[in-house]
Structure formats: C-alpha cells, structure tokens
Nucleic acid binder design. Structure first.
Lengths: 192, 192
DNA sequence: TGAAAAAAATGACCACGGTCAATTACAAAA
DNA sequence: TTTTGTAATTGACCGTGGTCATTTTTTTCA
C-alpha cells in the first residue's frame, strides 16, 4: 500500500513542462497543442494526462507561475499612496494578464475556485491581489469610511473591468491605464 | 448575380433554432451538442455551419435573446433610487447571467466585441446595461461628483465581481445580493 | 536474486467541433 | 418545359482534447 513516487515521474513531468514552455515561448499560450508538447517531450499522449488533469490544468500552472512572479515583482516596490500610484504599481500584473486574450480568459475562468479542494495558483493570486492592495490602502491617502479589504475588492473589480474593455473594439480609444486611473480616483477618493 | 434567399433557408434555420432550444430546455446550455441539434432538426452537420459561424455563434444568439428579454422586463419596472433598490431592480438580469456557469462565461467572453463589425446581442446588452443604470442614476439619491455614465460603469464592474464570486467556493457564504448591495452602497453613496 | 505487486507509460481509440468538395434543390430565363 | 446558374445541403473527413485496457518499468520483499 505504499505510494512511492519514482524519480522517473519527476523527470517526465519536468520534460513535459519544459517542452510546454518552449512551445509557448515560440507561439504564445493560445497556440499550445498537447500533441506538440508530448512530441517535443518525447512521450506518449496518455502520459500527458497522467501528469495533468487536462490541458487547462497545465495552463493554469504555467500561467499561475508567471502571475506569481508578477506579484513578487510588484511586492518588491514601495507601497503606492494615491490612486494613480496604485494603478501604476499594479501595472506588471495587469500587463501580463492582458498579454493575450487567451491568458485573460483563462485567468478569469480560474479566478474563483469551484471547490475548496481545488484552489489553484490563479485563485490564490486573486486573494493575494486583495491582500496586497488592502495593505497599501491602510496607509494610503484614501477614504476611510469602508474597510481596506472592501476597497481592495473594488480595485480588483475596476481592474478587471478596465482589462475587459482593453479587448473590446468599442472602447479601445481610451487607454487601459487612463481608464483605470479614472475609476480608482472615483472609488478611492470620492469628492462628495 | 442575384442573392435570392430561398424560403427553404429560413425554414431550416428555424428548425435548427427550435431544435437547439429544445435541447437546452431539457439539459441546459452547457450540455448542448451540435450533433444533437442537427439530428433533432433532421439536417446534416454541415448545414448547421452554413447557418452559424460556429457553435458559439448560435449560443450567443440564444443567450443574447434571453438576455434582451431580461432587459425588457427590467425596463418595465419603475426606476430605483437607492443602492439596494438598484441591486434589486437588476436582479432578473443578474439571475439569468448566473443561471449557469457556462452562460456566465460565454456572456463575459462576448461582452466586448473584438471588431466593430461583429457587435453581437450580448455586447449590445452590456452597453444597454450602462445606459439603463446611468438613466436611473440621473435622478437617484447618489453622489453627483462624477457622471452617471461613469457611475453606471462602476455598477457593472461590481455586478460582474459579485457574480464571479457567486461561482467561487471561497466566497459562497455571503449571498450575491448582499455582496452587491454592500459594493453599490460604498460606490454610489460614499460617506467620506 | 527472482517473483509478485505497484507505478508509470503507451497508443489505439473515442467525442466533438468544424471543413469542404461534391451533390441536390430551386428559380429565373429562354 | 427545358435549360442554366446559383443557393442550399450533404456527409465523409480532419484536428484536437481526452480515455483506458494493455504493456513496460520499477520497487518490494521473501
């Protein structure tokens, strides 16, 4: 009844991931085909699905990793204190999320875990987003009538709205950053 | 060089749509298979794709229709004047949008038209949403420091955020409506 | 060391969306 | 009515994600 994991397993897995990253490097996330990956990795198709539940699971992992790296980068910088500074500080995260339509769609689809047991890296990043921004807001020059957590959730909502509009022909005139700044200004520092 | 459209065409198209609606009635949108639709309609598979660009195009049409009906219904009612009233008034629209995860995902995916030429019913509904809410906000008891249009876009952003969280295991404790009301209250009537 | 048990890998196979060259039905002109 | 050009339909076929019974490799333990 032991559950020994063989070294072979890790090696195969590593080969698959490396192959996938190569394919993505060349053609982007959207164009990734499982067949290409297994061929590049030199394994059979079935092996892929022994390592990843489905293609999306691999994508979630790879995109999640990159997203985590973006968060790490953003957390290195100083805490922003105003709406434009916040929009600017989040830029690396937003840039990656909108780097490809496919990437954005997948991130949105995985942003909420459907079951507690399957909270993946992307869903965790969404929680991290709120924690990160809420942390900034505690000492930022913003309204204090509602909690930093609620404020941060709003920032997230506006960021997603702005990113959606970036992919939209009707609204491409106004730039993503301008739009987000307008939203955040109205949300964080209302002048009623 | 004439471009006569035969009566046959309309008939076939109607049969396909009816068949699709039947299938959806029974098993929901998610479960619809093109094969089932063409079989029920008594036509060949190729015929389906002569009438609809792809499966999503049919879905956009059908879901778009239902969504338009929801808007029609909401527009019948009196204009709400407070944050909870607004959340409540929009309920039929939000209820349909979150009736199935598949429906929500498809609506989000089609909410922004990628090209001017391909603005579909769903993208139009998103514009209509903003116009509708902006109309309400003109005479509602809400902050006046920013335009009704901007305020309405925010309402949309918060509604999408709340709907996303509805599908999320981590946040299912708080109900959709409660959550939206909290957001809208903070957005429309800040107490700085 | 060798046999039994467990883990990993294989590839033929399936499901489903989508394509397209060939065929059939239609409608207008002769 | 027949001819002819075009609109509409067909179904065999393809690409790609995903499955699973079988085979191969590794580990365990007498």
């Amino acid at each position: 009844m032991q559950k020994t994991v063989q070294k072979r397993t890790l090696k195969t897995r590593a080969r698959l991931i490396e192959a996938a990253e190569d394919v993505i490097e060349r053609n982007g996330y959207q164009a990734l085909r499982v067949e290409d990956v297994v061929q590049a990795a030199g394994v059979a198709k079935g092996t892929f699905f022994a390592h990843f539940r489905d293609k999306d699971a691999l994508m979630e992992m790879l995109i999640g990793e990159r997203l985590v790296a973006c968060f790490d980068q953003v957390e290195q910088g100083p805490a922003p204190r105003t709406a434009p500074e916040i929009a600017d500080a989040l830029q690396p995260i937003h840039a990656f999320m909108t780097s490809e339509r496919y990437v954005f769609d997948l991130i949105i689809r995985y942003s909420g875990a459907t079951a507690i047991t399957e909270i993946g890296p992307i869903a965790r990043c969404f929680e991290r987003y709120v924690r990160l921004v809420a942390g900034w807001l505690e000492t930022a020059k913003v309204r204090k009538d509602i909690s930093p957590d609620l404020l941060a959730e709003g920032v997230q909502a506006f960021a997603i709205q702005s990113m959606s509009l970036k992919f939209c022909a009707l609204h491409e005139a106004e730039s993503f950053l301008d739009r987000l700044e307008i939203y955040l200004d109205a949300w964080l520092t209302p002048a009623t």
